[in-house]
Computed example of a mutant assay.
Amino acid sequence: MIYTNIVNTKAPMKIEKLRDNRDFSFFKDYEPQSFPYPANEKQEREIKLNHMKIIIAGTMTDLHRNNDNLKSRSLLFLDIDGVQEPETDMMAKIELKLNGFNYALYPTLKYKPIENVRYRLVVELDREVNAEDYQTLIFGLYETLGIVYTFDQSNKTFSQAQALPIITEYTKEAQTRYQDDKKVFPVDTFLKIFRNNPNYTQAKPKQKPFYKSNHTNKKYTGAFLDELVAGAEHFNRNNWITRQIGRMLSVGADLETVYKMIVVVNENFLPEPLTQKEVYETFESMTKKHSRGA
């Protein structure tokens, strides 16, 4: 199934009607939204949170988007951001590696030729996959494509929704693709290939080793870092994130540093990350409160 919504809403995801019961065909019929290229971060957030449509393809047990309610995914989404090689080279790699499979490729909101090349790749899978298999496929495709890019940490979150195609004054120059006359991507075949990749073993989360503390007189910074890595229980995530942001602000860290740190902590050290919207709204609330001297 295809589920759509916007980020900044408490309304449940909407189930989209498909003409042929193929999730991938949704992209063939979809009419992109049009937006002006964001002039600054505030305008970008406004578009992303309140106007731009997002999508999840797969099976949800409840229409409220989170990792618990998302049972499986039917399409694989890869964000290719901040491409650090010529755009023509990136395109050539995708065409070569995915020539035999159905895929869609479209520019994202901040796409600008040469200066800021950003695309979203959508691959049709031959079966729906769970969270573990989805992460393996993400790793394997990134490795296989060999594109020099900036990794978006949101790809690690199973229930992370992706923005649908859009049009700006710059995307008219981008190279969109919708290849629908090939094969669907054989999940089980490639899971075996990817898991036999030596880099996959290195990339997998390793069992936490046992360490004996070598500090009997732990300083504030050491205790704080330990707490960040320890994370929080599922039921206490929001309060925990709020407290950590407040602690970083209280010691004078730059706002950019605080936000980047809390995003990394959220994605890597919580049993189930909060959504980008929840993290940003908490960060924004705390920075306003801090600026008032509260």
Rank of each mutant, 00 (worst) to 15 (best):
W240Q: 11
A163N: 13
Q207E: 13
K42E: 14
D133S: 14
E16F: 03
V184Y: 05
Q33G: 06
M248E: 11
T136W: 01
G146R: 03
L270C: 02
E272V: 11
Q175T: 14
F235W: 06
P36W: 01
L78V: 10
Q153T: 10
A174F: 10
A11P: 00
K53F: 11
L49K: 12
Q244R: 15
I241E: 10
I6E: 11
K260F: 02
P271A: 09
Y37V: 02
Y259S: 04
P205S: 09
R65A: 04
G252H: 09
V148M: 08
V123P: 07
R247F: 07
F24Y: 11
K17L: 10
L105S: 01
F194S: 03
E95D: 13
A253C: 15
K183S: 14
Q162R: 09
I147D: 05
Y106M: 04
R45L: 15
N21F: 01
Q84P: 00
L63Y: 06
L105D: 01
T257Q: 14
N236V: 06
E272Y: 04
F235L: 09
Y259T: 03
Y200I: 05
Y3T: 02
V122M: 04
E227W: 01
D29G: 14
I94N: 01
V229E: 13
E41M: 05
M286T: 07
A57N: 05
K17D: 11
P273R: 07
F185L: 10
E233C: 05
M248L: 12
G146T: 06
Q33T: 03
T171M: 10
K93D: 07
E46A: 08
F194E: 08
E256Y: 13
K112A: 14
I241G: 10
E44M: 01
V184N: 14
M91R: 03
A11D: 15
F210N: 08
A131M: 05
T144V: 01
K183G: 02
F77N: 11
E256M: 12
F210P: 00
G146I: 03
E272H: 04
K212A: 03
A232P: 12
Y178H: 09
L105Y: 00
